[in-house]
Design a protein around this nucleic acid. Structure first.
Lengths: 214, 214, 214, 214
DNA sequence: GATGAATGAGCATTCATTCAT
DNA sequence: CATGAATGAATGCTCATTCAT
């Protein structure tokens, strides 16, 4: 599916507004006005407000997927380095598309799911998990990772932490006295801290044999 | 503030619906219908839809806060045990009020914030963090915890992981072949796994001296 | 019909609010709140909002009527003095009950008339006119007033002028640089000016033989 | 501001209904139904019920103003003739737009004023008064009008009388046994009587030196 | 007699969508 | 292709009144 410049413009505005005010909280008039197009264009171009958000997922999910697949190609790294790459890839994807991942998280919080979107999300999550499990298996075979790692919970921690860090970044700024830092610099800083934090978490967990066994 | 049985009934229905469909996605008519009261009662009792959600926060937040404060009283535990208690307390609070914490997470995802609610959330988060930092300090003074622990990120991981686990529990069920498990049993199972997982994560992180130093 | 202190209190508040915001623009809740009584008391005491305004007319109209009848008793005055008394009586009644006469004027502007109220108004107006015509007849018989006086238009001028002066008193203050005058003093001032103005108008008109004859 | 045929249709219906039932007493549904348009068109065209009445004032006030300004051009008349023209102009404006002037009078009776409308009214009244005062000054300079004429009260009598005559025309019909007269003929008759009456009043007042001096 | 809870109709307005051009 | 007018359902809320006590 190809989208015209005007369609992409609408999608981008919609992404921002859905992120800020939620899907139900955003009217097509809001979108049309900010995208500087006629209201009827949204139904005209996409069929409905529902189809618009589906188009958004279509685009962003394929981007996410291709960025995920670049990970597979890196062959000459050791298991820990690969895990670290996966972590940075996740941080980049989520931090670099905060609006979209905000929408995606909301979608997962909702019980009014659209099949098309749910499928997208499930597929990406499956692929994510698959990749993580493969990396871990490699590490285990190389003897550097411990057995009995619940990768689905590690994955939950990875995405849960990043998502929650994004959601509460303002609070993080305040309590760490970073309120005067430039927005761009803060974003870089937060990425770095998240990267260190998550790498440390993962390293301790996948390598440490002395974990709790209850 | 005291609420009558009928008011509480409305609040509970609202909590479930806001959780399922979001605040903007839930109409007062939806709530009135499911709570089996006249539509105008919502304005009559709470003043407005907005005030209704504020009443919900008023109630749940004070509950959360008092449950949080019970932690302070446990004196005869060692630092690790205290951290573990804090983790279980968080799991209990979030897993035991999934609807409400779903709403709370959405609220944090939104940029259209209500001051009253934002204040509640900020205050609870501050108290949470305060408590965690105090526990960690005790562990550090006892010589069992390492220095340089970024508690705000550890807290992010704690709440981020639980919130995300709740949001994606259906997915977790599916990939772990737990689809036939009874709902209640699954909830218990998930709590236990989360508990183990987070305790393991925290223990490795707060005690392990070999963390990444970049 | 006798009214209790609480009922009178409600009626007085209603009078003020109907005057300020109109009948339809005033809710029974507004009235109840300002009168410091329970909302249901208005229906309880008067039957309905409609009946409340009828009660108001009942009271004020009988007051107006008795004040009007005092005129009849003044026997030892000449025709001009009697006319002047009638003018001052009208000014006193309207200026002294601005709220009520505001409501009464609105009622006459409306085509959604309540029979009870319409009857009150018509009866008072008839009695007013009757009295004026009687005074004029006396003057004509005494030879001091000219023939062919359209008393219904003179009456229209009398009440129209006072009503309009009341409605536009703020404007009158402004254009006559009286904005710093105390409210009470201004009321007295306006009454006096109106009295002079109307007496002058009436005297010129009822006595001057050189009026237009087209 | 230009208005489409449909907008004008709505405005005309609104004018009639506001006149009959007051602003608060008229619902947008009433207007929509009588104007035979969809309810939402009123918000669509005017933004709100409030803006609708503002649009009405915009239109009628500019009409009134231009009709008022035609007076200025009549040069070759004597002072009395000019005053008479001003009276007839006022009668024509008010009698020819009874609905609108009913609304305008109500607006002046209300203490819940809309700034936009208040400004319109004040400006027109100022212009009215200005013109009257100028005419009177000309008459005084020509030596035919007496000094010390309170034009603001004369103006009050002019507009008060016409407004009140319109408000009570039904009563006037009845007491003058004109109930069988055709509506159109009655309107012409009333205009003529008002014209005679007011011209007579004004002439006596502005020229008669024997006015009351208390 | 007096009250606060409760009702259901009605309010102005906004919604996503469709229609005529 | 693209648009602005138009639609009718739905929104949150207020209304005058009534009910149960």
């Amino acid at each position: 599916m190809e989208y015209s410049a005007k369609q992409l413009q609408i999608i981008e505005v919609a992404e921002r507004l859905f992120s800020q005010k939620g899907f139900a909280g955003t009217s097509v008039r809001d979108i049309a006005q900010e995208a500087d197009v006629n209201v009827s264009m949204i139904s005209y171009y996409f069929g409905s407000k529902e189809k618009l958000i589906e188009a958004l997922f279509e685009i962003r999910m394929s981007e996410s997927r291709s960025r995920l697949e670049t990970l597979v190609q890196s062959e000459d790294l050791n298991p820990i380095q690969k895990i670290n790459m996966l972590i940075d890839n996740a941080i980049d994807r989520l931090m670099g598309n905060q609006c979209f991942h905000n929408i995606m998280l909301r979608e997962q919080l909702s019980s009014e799911r659209t099949p098309v979107i749910s499928d997208h999300i499930r597929n990406l999550k499956l692929r994510n998990l698959e990749l993580m499990q493969q990396l871990v298996r490699e590490g285990q075979e190389a003897g550097v990772f411990r057995k009995n790692i619940d990768m689905s919970l590690m994955s939950t921690t990875l995405y849960g932490t990043i998502n929650y860090a994004i959601a509460t970044q303002e609070f993080y700024r305040k309590i760490n006295d970073l309120e005067n830092m430039e927005e761009e610099e803060f974003q870089k800083y937060l990425r770095k801290r998240l990267s260190q934090h998550l790498k440390s978490l993962f390293k301790s967990t996948v390598t440490n044999e002395h974990h709790i066994e209850n």
